[in-house]
Simulated assay, not measured.
Amino acid sequence: DAKKALKMFEKVEVPVLGIVENMAVHTCSNCGHVEHLFGWGGGERMAAQYGVPLLGSLPLDIAIREQGDAGQPVVVAAPDSAVAQAYRQTARVMAATLAQRPRASVPIASSLV
Protein backbone atom coordinates (compact mmCIF):
# COMPACT_ATOMS: atom_id res chain seq x y z
CA ASP A 1 0.00 0.00 0.00
CA ALA A 2 2.77 2.43 0.89
CA LYS A 3 4.58 1.79 -2.41
CA LYS A 4 1.35 2.39 -4.33
CA ALA A 5 0.79 5.63 -2.44
CA LEU A 6 4.33 6.82 -3.06
CA LYS A 7 4.06 6.05 -6.78
CA MET A 8 0.74 7.91 -6.94
CA PHE A 9 2.27 10.97 -5.25
CA GLU A 10 5.15 10.88 -7.74
CA LYS A 11 2.72 10.58 -10.66
CA VAL A 12 0.73 13.64 -9.59
CA GLU A 13 3.94 15.51 -8.64
CA VAL A 14 3.22 15.79 -4.93
CA PRO A 15 6.52 15.97 -3.04
CA VAL A 16 7.02 13.35 -0.35
CA LEU A 17 8.90 14.30 2.81
CA GLY A 18 9.96 10.72 3.53
CA ILE A 19 8.95 7.36 4.92
CA VAL A 20 7.67 6.54 8.41
CA GLU A 21 7.76 2.82 9.08
CA ASN A 22 4.68 1.89 11.08
CA MET A 23 4.47 -1.24 13.28
CA ALA A 24 8.22 -1.74 12.82
CA VAL A 25 8.83 -3.71 15.99
CA HIS A 26 6.86 -5.26 18.84
CA THR A 27 8.16 -5.67 22.37
CA CYS A 28 6.32 -8.24 24.48
CA SER A 29 4.83 -6.56 27.53
CA ASN A 30 5.31 -9.75 29.57
CA CYS A 31 8.89 -10.80 28.84
CA GLY A 32 10.42 -7.92 26.88
CA HIS A 33 11.20 -10.03 23.80
CA VAL A 34 11.61 -7.82 20.73
CA GLU A 35 10.22 -9.13 17.47
CA HIS A 36 9.85 -7.73 13.95
CA LEU A 37 6.44 -9.24 13.20
CA PHE A 38 6.25 -7.85 9.66
CA GLY A 39 9.90 -8.27 8.70
CA TRP A 40 12.90 -6.07 9.31
CA GLY A 41 14.26 -3.12 7.33
CA GLY A 42 11.29 -2.53 5.03
CA GLY A 43 11.24 1.20 5.70
CA GLU A 44 14.98 1.55 5.03
CA ARG A 45 14.75 -0.43 1.79
CA MET A 46 11.79 1.55 0.53
CA ALA A 47 13.41 4.88 1.42
CA ALA A 48 16.57 3.87 -0.44
CA GLN A 49 14.60 2.56 -3.42
CA TYR A 50 12.68 5.83 -3.83
CA GLY A 51 15.46 8.20 -2.79
CA VAL A 52 13.64 9.68 0.19
CA PRO A 53 14.73 9.68 3.84
CA LEU A 54 13.50 7.26 6.46
CA LEU A 55 11.99 9.66 8.98
CA GLY A 56 11.39 7.13 11.72
CA SER A 57 10.14 3.74 12.80
CA LEU A 58 7.15 3.42 15.08
CA PRO A 59 6.45 0.36 17.21
CA LEU A 60 3.44 -1.91 17.35
CA ASP A 61 2.24 -1.43 20.91
CA ILE A 62 -1.20 -1.82 22.46
CA ALA A 63 -0.70 1.38 24.49
CA ILE A 64 -0.93 3.40 21.26
CA ARG A 65 -4.47 2.14 20.65
CA GLU A 66 -5.54 2.15 24.29
CA GLN A 67 -4.36 5.68 24.98
CA GLY A 68 -5.71 6.91 21.64
CA ASP A 69 -9.11 5.39 22.40
CA ALA A 70 -9.02 7.12 25.79
CA GLY A 71 -8.34 10.44 24.07
CA GLN A 72 -4.86 10.82 25.48
CA PRO A 73 -1.96 10.14 23.09
CA VAL A 74 0.74 7.83 24.42
CA VAL A 75 3.25 10.71 24.39
CA VAL A 76 1.05 12.43 26.99
CA ALA A 77 -0.10 9.36 28.93
CA ALA A 78 3.35 7.77 29.17
CA PRO A 79 5.88 10.43 28.14
CA ASP A 80 8.91 8.46 29.34
CA SER A 81 7.97 5.24 27.55
CA ALA A 82 9.94 3.83 24.63
CA VAL A 83 6.84 4.25 22.46
CA ALA A 84 6.59 7.97 23.26
CA GLN A 85 10.31 8.36 22.63
CA ALA A 86 9.93 6.78 19.16
CA TYR A 87 7.13 9.22 18.30
CA ARG A 88 9.08 12.23 19.57
CA GLN A 89 12.22 11.18 17.68
CA THR A 90 10.24 10.72 14.46
CA ALA A 91 8.61 14.14 14.95
CA ARG A 92 12.05 15.75 15.47
CA VAL A 93 13.43 14.18 12.29
CA MET A 94 10.31 15.19 10.34
CA ALA A 95 10.55 18.79 11.57
CA ALA A 96 14.27 18.99 10.77
CA THR A 97 13.75 17.50 7.31
CA LEU A 98 10.86 19.86 6.62
CA ALA A 99 12.88 22.87 7.81
CA GLN A 100 15.61 22.06 5.29
CA ARG A 101 13.21 22.17 2.34
CA PRO A 102 12.62 25.32 0.33
CA ARG A 103 9.23 26.83 1.13
CA ALA A 104 7.89 26.10 -2.38
CA SER A 105 8.43 22.35 -1.99
CA VAL A 106 6.75 21.84 1.37
CA PRO A 107 5.12 18.42 1.05
CA ILE A 108 1.46 17.88 1.60
CA ALA A 109 1.67 14.12 1.59
CA SER A 110 3.54 11.43 3.47
CA SER A 111 3.62 7.70 3.25
CA LEU A 112 3.52 5.04 5.93
CA VAL A 113 5.11 1.65 5.48
Rank of each mutant, 00 (worst) to 15 (best):
A2M: 04
K3N: 14
K4H: 15
K4E: 15
A5P: 07
L6Q: 08
L6V: 01
K7I: 07
K7H: 13
M8G: 09
M8Y: 12
M8K: 10
M8R: 14
E13C: 08
V14G: 01
V14M: 09
P15Q: 05
V16S: 00
V16D: 00
I19N: 07
I19E: 11
V20Y: 04
V20C: 05
E21H: 10
N22V: 03
M23Q: 14
M23P: 11
M23F: 14
M23A: 11
T27K: 15
C28D: 10
S29A: 15
N30V: 14
N30G: 15
C31P: 08
C31E: 12
G32K: 10
V34Q: 11
V34N: 09
L37C: 09
G39N: 01
G39W: 00
G41I: 04
G42W: 02
G43V: 06
G43S: 06
G43M: 01
G43L: 01
E44C: 00
R45E: 04
A47E: 03
A48L: 03
Q49K: 14
Y50H: 07
Y50L: 03
V52R: 02
V52Y: 06
P53G: 12
L54K: 05
L54I: 06
L55V: 03
L55E: 03
G56S: 02
G56N: 02
S57A: 06
P59Y: 02
L60I: 14
D61R: 12
I62H: 15
I62D: 15
A63M: 14
A63F: 11
A63W: 14
A63N: 12
A63R: 15
R65W: 07
R65A: 12
E66I: 12
E66M: 14
Q67P: 03
G68H: 04
A70S: 05
A70C: 07
V75Q: 01
V76F: 11
D80E: 15
D80C: 10
D80P: 09
S81V: 08
S81P: 04
S81E: 08
A82Q: 13
V83N: 03
V83A: 12
V83Y: 04
A84S: 09
Q85R: 08
A86H: 06
A86I: 01
Y87H: 10
R88N: 05
Q89R: 04
A91Y: 04
A91C: 04
V93M: 06
V93F: 02
V93S: 10
M94C: 07
A95R: 04
A96S: 06
A96I: 02
T97S: 11
L98S: 02
Q100M: 13
R101T: 08
A104I: 07
A104D: 13
A104N: 10
A104M: 06
V106K: 01
P107D: 02
P107M: 01
P107S: 01
I108C: 11
S110F: 13
S111C: 13
V113G: 10
